[in-house]
Design a binder for these strands. Structure first.
Length: 875
DNA sequence: ACCGCCGGGTGCC
DNA sequence: ACCGCCGGGTGCC
């Protein structure tokens, strides 16, 4: 195996965080070209954006006509679904509405009299209009179309009125005819009512969606290719067998049937002459720690070319005798090496592209090194860093190209990655593309590949909607188009129709393999993990600490109640977070709370600095702030003049689309691109740490040290993680650790890759004299971080988001952990920390009811934030 | 389109 | 006849 990684590797070693690149010197134009956004930002609106579709009710139906059939090539079947699409630039009628079949070919137009009110309704997003051709599909000039109007209740009257003005009237149709996502029977057999489910039933069904997927056909095992250096566990052999069979499948995709030399899609009634290609790939959704990476490496090597494995080269004859014991194997191998090499060409791509978050890039490299036999030759290139290759021919000669989502997204439009045809694309932590509007999602969806895989431990995080981009990436016909996904699956399921859920279930079953840590194989658990126990240890502040806490709290509470009275809480969101942050810091240590000057702003420079400080507050407070636009973690955070933080691509898109009077999505203040302030490059944190104040202890530190010394008495070899969101706090803890003679190491988000690797290796080392303690910042490192040497965790301060804590605990409670894991959470009594626990519990409940708690709208997000603030400050 | 609509040709019975 | 009626030309938006 050879790694072509010199320059990129060096860069990787010193790069610490993908968000650290500073774009502030770019103009907005540069910014857009950087991301290839010019093409993307002005894309036509897809009918049915999230808010429209989720709360949509059926207003009624209307029979209309499709005209101009003879001018277009698109054909339909009776009972086939059609899409209605506005065509505002039509030369003859600005109200034109096109009618397209399922594969997007135009069938005709809606007759102009009807197009007039439709255009108004569609342009103003008063309703989503969907069509089915009930009969007359073979007509030469016109055909009927049954339209259904879906929208928000509050828009119903406007729709009815508009239609009435033009002389149309909606026919209300009994719901059962319409809930069904299937085009056909909705009309031909209106008698049978769809079986409705309660929200409760639906929720539990949905929760089970990814469980119990162990079908008989997925228990088949397959031996890995010789080139795989690590013997696979039984469940990994199952994964390999399943993945290979998915890639080599010649079957028709789900929901397609062959009838009279045509291929019918049973959901939409669409038919085509050409055989629809099956998605050669799927979703490997095994729990973390079951070896998705290893399974994928085994897949690459085992299904290397034409269903054959990567041949083992340079292998000595006597070794071969040992391995196989038969001479002809050798002959077969060398022969196939040559044929394999010869068969590569433009049309037959050889390269697997793997895209992962930066944090697990090094994990992939390690795993390739670990799991490929050293005598096997595999070209692996790490496409990362400023000196990455710009040569498509070079990339296409690799067997594996590794890159990150950020590289993928930032190269979108100019990139090599989107010009090449890949043999296979693998998205690691594939849920990162669950937001269809995110750049990385769009970039991923535009890759060309024969085989497509998504690796993820969390296939559905919030709702059904998250699934769409995954399915779209897999190129599953006809779901690639959001309208068909929505009409055939998403809405029927949301409306509680059993047929819809059944379709969803068989779809998921068809393309997903998921085993959990507790799954069993032949009666034995897949993995046996030791227990994990969480204890909460209450800490009481000293009278002195309490005095400071109380005064800061009273001051902050007064300010916040003033904001509430003025109704400006969200406008002062950064200030509110600031108050809460100071309180949380005071729970840990009085020295954490440094005064931030709050002079009234005057010069632009001062304003800028003030904004940067506010943003730092929001970001460094570890509040796990989400961008209110994409509702995802912040990517390239920027702060507005009204002090709200968003992803730069997200807010730029808003500004672009609302030109010229863009408003802040949170407070409706005026927004300008040139007013956005970027997050500056992180200065080394030591500047704050070297506050040169004399070291003092705190109640929490005392509690920690007491526990550590106790523990050492019982067992001097036991290793601990000490976790905090405040790196300054970790620094303060260093002092008593040294005094008490503990050997410790430390892992921060801001450390270089090289230093991190060193820290992790020394901590994982089991020799006496190796560090027994690691100081860990809560969010350092991604899911790949393996700290199984630790069996005790001390969480010094609670996080807003319990998932962040759990993720942190999983870094030691994972495959390889031999002991029970004991976690201690220090919580200060009668403080903001106790209130944070309340919020954590609420969030846990919400997460448990993943499906019932559909994704929040912007205003719901606001309300949630307001409620949280009230809880936190005791209002 | 085996329609509808348009507009030119036409005009007592 | 500033009409009716006839029959040819014509046809999405």
């Amino acid at each position: 195996m050879s790694f072509c990684r010199d320059s990129a590797w060096k860069y990787l070693q010193s790069a610490h965080h993908e968000g650290d690149r500073n774009y502030s010197h770019y103009t907005s134009h540069d910014f857009y070209s950087q991301f290839g956004l010019e093409d993307v930002i002005c894309t036509d609106d897809i009918p049915g954006t999230d808010e429209d579709t989720d709360s949509a009710v059926l207003f009624g139906t209307l029979r209309g006509n499709v005209v101009g059939l003879r001018y277009y090539t698109g054909v339909v079947n009776n009972n086939e679904m059609v899409a209605l699409q506005r065509e505002p630039n039509n030369l003859y009628d600005k109200n034109a509405v096109k009618v397209n079949n399922v594969s997007g070919n135009q069938v005709g137009h809606i007759k102009k009299e009807l197009a007039a009110p439709l255009a108004y309704i569609m342009d103003n997003k008063l309703a989503i209009v969907e069509g089915v051709v009930p009969y007359g599909a073979k007509n030469a000039f016109t055909m009927p179309v049954q339209m259904s109007f879906w929208g928000k209740e509050e828009n119903k009257q406007a729709v009815l009125d508009k239609l009435k003005v033009h002389g149309f009237k909606l026919a209300p149709l009994s719901k059962s005819n319409w809930v069904s996502g299937r085009a056909g029977p909705s009309y031909s057999a209106p008698g049978h009512a769809a079986v409705q489910m309660t929200t409760e039933q639906l929720k539990s069904e949905f929760d089970k969606l990814f469980e119990d997927l162990k079908e008989d056909d997925k228990t088949h095992e397959m031996e890995e290719a010789e080139a795989v250096g690590t013997p696979l566990l039984p469940h990994q052999k199952q994964a390999l067998a399943w993945m290979v069979s998915r890639e080599n499948s010649k079957e028709l995709p789900l929901f397609w049937e062959e009838k009279n030399n045509f291929y019918y899609n049973t959901l939409t009634n669409f038919a085509e002459k050409e055989r629809p290609e099956n998605a050669l790939g799927g979703i490997l959704a095994d729990d973390m720690g079951l070896g998705k990476t290893l399974a994928t490496i085994a897949l690459i090597l085992t299904n290397f070319h034409d269903g054959k494995p990567l041949p083992v080269e340079n292998i000595k004859r006597d070794q071969l005798y040992k391995v196989r014991g038969v001479f002809f194997v050798f002959v077969f191998c060398t022969a196939s090496v040559q044929s394999v090499k010869k068969n590569y060409s433009e049309e037959r791509p050889r390269t697997t592209l793997i895209i992962c978050p930066l944090s697990v890039l090094s994990n992939w490299i390690d795993q390739f090194e670990q799991h490929i036999r050293p005598d096997v030759h595999l070209n692996i290139y790490i496409y990362y860093g400023p000196d990455r290759s710009k040569d498509p021919a070079f990339l296409s000669k690799q067997d594996v190209v590794l890159t990150t989502y950020n590289i993928l997204a930032s190269d979108y439009g100019v990139s090599l990655l989107h010009r090449l045809k890949w043999l296979r694309v693998v998205l690691d932590e594939g849920h990162t593309i669950r937001n269809p509007n995110a750049q990385q999602t769009k970039a991923a969806l535009n890759l060309e590949a024969q085989r497509r895989w998504i690796l993820t431990g969390t296939p559905i995080q919030n709702s059904l909607k998250d699934l769409w981009s995954l399915l779209s990436f897999l190129k599953l016909k006809p779901f690639t188009d959001r309208e068909w996904w929505h009409r055939t699956i998403q809405r029927p399921v949301m409306l509680g129709e059993q047929g819809g859920l059944r379709r969803l279930q068989s779809l998921i079953k068809n393309i997903t393999l998921r085993r959990t840590k507790t799954s069993k194989i032949k009666g034995k658990p897949v993995l046996e993990l030791p227990e994990r126990k969480v204890f909460i240890q209450h800490v009481t502040l000293t009278e002195e600490e309490r005095k400071i806490y109380r005064s800061v709290k009273n001051e902050g509470k007064a300010a916040i109640s003033r904001y509430f009275n003025e109704g400006t809480v969200l406008a002062h969101y950064a200030d509110v977070l600031g108050v809460l942050l100071r309180l949380r810091q005071l729970c840990c240590h009085p020295h954490l709370c440094t005064n931030t000057s709050s002079s009234s702003d005057s010069t632009p420079e001062e304003l800028r600095e003030k904004l940067v400080n506010k943003m730092k507050l929001v970001l460094s407070s570890g509040s796990d702030e989400e961008c209110a636009i994409c509702l995802d973690s912040l990517n390239l955070p920027v702060i507005t003049h009204c002090a709200h933080v968003f992803c730069k691509p997200c807010i730029c898109e808003v500004i672009q689309s609302e030109q010229p009077n863009a408003k802040c999505p949170l407070c409706r203040n005026e927004l300008r691109v040139e007013h956005l302030v970027e997050y500056p490059l992180e200065e080394s944190e030591s500047s704050i740490e070297k506050g040169d104040r004399e070291w003092i202890s705190s109640s929490k530190i005392n509690a920690l040290m007491h526990a550590l010394i106790d523990l050492r008495k019982q067992n001097p070899a036991v290793k601990c993680l000490i976790v905090s969101q405040f790196t300054t706090f970790l620094s303060l803890i260093e002092t008593p650790l040294k005094e008490s003679g503990f050997v410790f190491t430390r892992l921060n988000g801001s450390m270089t890759q090289k230093k991190r690797v060193q820290a992790i290796q020394s901590f994982q080392d089991s020799h006496t004299g190796s560090p027994t303690i690691m100081l860990l910042s809560l969010k350092a490192g991604g899911v790949g971080l393996n700290l199984t040497a630790a069996s005790r965790v001390f969480l010094m301060d609670p996080a807003w988001n319990p998932a962040a804590e759990d993720q942190c605990f999983d870094r030691c409670h994972r495959l390889g952990q031999k002991q029970d894991v004991v976690i201690t959470k220090f919580i200060v009594k009668n403080s903001v920390e106790e209130n944070m626990l309340k919020i954590q519990n609420k969030k846990r409940e919400l997460a448990a009811g993943a499906f019932a708690s559909k994704k929040l709208t912007a205003s719901e997000v606001k309300q949630t934030k307001i409620n949280e603030i009230k809880t936190l400050i005791d209002l």
